[in-house]
């Protein structure tokens, strides 16, 4: 019987996917329903926003991007 699983398809590159899986593992696998291939994940619908914000946190720590790049000319 065919199954339809509701969720959000997340497309990202392999490095981002690794980070997402890392977040998932550290949080009792509360985010990801299924890994689909190198670039696609199926994520719980209501967890997308939280997962995204956690990813931003992680990227900020990793990249340490300069926040003040305002030059006037």
């Amino acid at each position: 019987m065919v199954k339809a699983v509701p969720g959000a398809l997340v497309k990202c590159d392999a490095s981002i996917k690794a980070m997402l899986i890392n977040i998932d593992n550290e949080n009792r696998n509360d985010f990801i329903i299924e890994e689909l291939d190198e670039e696609h994940l199926l994520v719980k619908k209501d967890k997308v926003a939280e997962l995204k914000s956690r990813l931003h946190e992680m990227m900020k720590q990793v990249l340490r991007e300069p926040d003040t790049d305002e030059s006037d000319n």
């Binding site: 590159d13 997308v48 995204k52």
Partner: peptide, 9 residues
């Protein structure tokens, strides 16, 4: 960095 689509698998 991620592209999200709501729907069904």
């Amino acid at each position: 960095r991620v592209e999200v689509t709501q729907g069904y698998l």
